[in-house]
Simulated scan of single mutants.
Amino acid sequence: MMVPNWRGLLLRLALPDGYQGGLAGLSSDDEQKLIGMLFDQLGEFLAARESADVLLKIYDAYLKWLRH
C-alpha cells in the first residue's frame, strides 16, 4: 500500500472530493482551503506534542487513519 506524502495528505483533508492536478493548478479557493488545512494541522500537532504520551497518540491516530 502506498502511503501519500504530506502534500497528498493535506490535499485529501482539504479537498475531500478529490483533486487530480498538480499544486500549481489549484484554484484560488482550493489554495486557501489547503493553506487553512496546513495551519490547522500544524496547530493540532503543536498542541498535541505538549502531551506526555504524544508519540503514542500520533501513531494511534495514524493507524486508525490507515485502517479507514
Rank of each mutant, 00 (worst) to 15 (best):
Y19L: 14
H68F: 01
G22A: 15
D29L: 07
A47M: 11
D40R: 06
D40C: 10
N5P: 06
I58E: 11
P4V: 03
G21L: 13
M2A: 15
W6I: 12
K57E: 07
K64M: 11
W65F: 05
A24R: 13
L10C: 07
Y59K: 12
K33G: 01
A61V: 06
M37L: 11
L26T: 09
Q20G: 14
L11C: 06
M37I: 01
K57M: 04
Q41H: 00
G36T: 10
A14V: 08
L38T: 11
E44A: 13
V3F: 03
L9I: 01
N5T: 02
Q41I: 02
V3C: 05
L55A: 09
A24Y: 02
L23K: 04
W65C: 11
R12Q: 13
L13Y: 05
Q32T: 08
L42H: 02
I35Q: 15
L56T: 06
R12N: 08
Q41V: 06
Q41R: 06
M37W: 02
Y59A: 14
L56H: 06
Y19H: 15
Y62N: 04
G21T: 08
S27I: 03
W6Y: 11
R49Y: 02
R67Q: 15
Y19V: 13
D40V: 05
Q32F: 00
Y19C: 14
M37R: 10
N5E: 10
R67E: 15
K64V: 10
E31M: 12
A52I: 02
G21P: 05
D53Q: 09
G25H: 09
S27V: 04
S27N: 08
F45I: 10
D29E: 14
G25N: 14
L23G: 15
E31K: 11
Y62W: 04
Q32H: 09
S51R: 13
L42K: 00
A48I: 04
G25T: 04
G25E: 15
Y59F: 14
H68I: 03
R67Y: 03
P4K: 09
L46Y: 01
E44F: 03
L9W: 01
F45Q: 04
L15Q: 11
M2W: 01
R67K: 09
L11A: 12
S27H: 04
A47T: 11
L63E: 15
S27F: 08
L15K: 07
L11V: 12
K57C: 06
D30C: 02
K33M: 10
L23E: 15
